[in-house]
């Protein structure tokens, strides 16, 4: 049960349109910069409201302009991993990890903090400040924070772009394990063919 998205949005005289459905695993959004890839992720997350259309993920209707359904972001249970990780600078690593976990109801939690730390190899970072983390560490903490928030699907916006090649391989392995071991569908934005070929089951080209 993956993504079933059909949305359009008029922005500054341009129309952003995306239509894709079906596949399990990783769905990659490819396209030149400015094609609206991030905007599509924002629409699925509920941060940007589509002009019209329908967004269904794993059988849950998140948005349907015809039916007047528009779940707010906090009720969509998405794990959004941003290009710039967006860890909260006024909290330490542990507080960042637990931010969404504390807000999730018991039955929404799919993983415990201990499991997440083991899975991501970030147990030794818990008492660190966000500012001192390397790019790879910060991205792993960001993925952990999203996992712990009870995410039922992931949105990843060029999560490897700020990393050096060695760390890229590491995070890609992690993404594959989220895809395979945890069976969480992932919508993945990139402009790197090689990343997409390794990770994606389905490729959607925008713009």
């Amino acid at each position: 049960m993956g993504f079933d998205v059909d949305v359009t949005l008029d922005r500054g005289g341009r129309t952003i349109a995306a239509r894709f459905a079906g596949a399990q695993g990783v769905t990659a959004l490819l396209g030149p910069s400015g094609a609206g890839k991030t905007t599509v992720l924002d629409m699925v997350a509920g941060l940007v409201r589509p002009g019209a259309g329908r967004i269904v993920v794993g059988g849950r209707v998140l948005f349907d302009s015809a039916a007047g359904i528009d779940l707010p972001p906090e009720r969509r249970a998405c794990g959004y991993v941003f290009q710039d990780h967006r860890l909260f600078p006024h909290m330490g690593v542990e507080a960042n990890l637990l931010y969404g976990w504390r807000l999730a109801r018991r039955e929404e939690r799919r993983i415990t903090p201990d499991e997440a730390c083991a899975f991501l190899g970030i147990g030794h970072l818990l008492n660190r400040r966000v500012r001192g983390l390397s790019g790879g560490e910060a991205q792993r903490v960001a993925i952990g924070r999203a996992l712990l928030s009870g995410a039922r699907f992931f949105l990843m916006d060029e999560p490897l772009s700020s990393l050096d090649p060695a760390r890229r391989g590491e995070i890609m392995t992690l993404i594959e394990r989220i895809r395979d071991d945890l069976a969480i569908p992932i919508l993945y934005v990139s402009h790197q063919r090689s990343e997409v070929e390794r990770l994606a089951q389905q490729v959607v080209t925008l713009g």
């Binding site: 997350a45 509920g46 941060l47 972001p73 249970a77 941003f82 909260f88 931010y99």
Partner: peptide, 24 residues
Amino acid sequence: RFESAARTLGASRLRVFFGITLPM
């Protein structure tokens, strides 16, 4: 962008205000 990140993690507008914006 920190506020929208908090929303996707399950925080309502009010919670984002008190937990993210106000401390900042």
